[in-house]
Amino acid sequence: MTPDRWIVTVTGLALIAFIVWFFWLKRSTGFRATETSGGYQEAMILVKGGYTPDTIIVRSGRPVRLNFRREETASCSDKVIFADFQKSADLPTGQTVAVELLPKEPGEFGFACPMGMFRGRLIVE
């Protein structure tokens, strides 16, 4: 094999390893929802290219209010779906939309845009 082929092959394999590590081997630390005087566990979530934060930690048995604020116009993210809770909300650009849930059991529940490109997790303890 010529040197240029070696270089291309090694670079390619390194790139693949990077892609795997970068996209698939991430572990996000969760964001713990703050408790308000009204008894709600609240968190603000920014919708822009993804959900920030994308992992929300809450306690079971208490109402949760997630305030989504979408700051982009791509039509993919114009809705958020909590499939396990049978809840969804339209997210008009530039508006804060509250989604209220009552997690009864501990576990991990996903939320996502209708096409599943944006994903987040609700961890119930």
């Binding site: 970068f22 996209f23 991430k26 822009k48 290219g49 993804g50 959900y51 920030t52 994308d54 982009e72 993919c76 490109m117 944006f118 994903r119």
Partner: peptide, 9 residues
């Protein structure tokens, strides 16, 4: 925006 979340679309 997606890369900052270590995501791709």
């Amino acid at each position: 925006d997606a890369l900052r979340h270590r995501a791709a679309n």
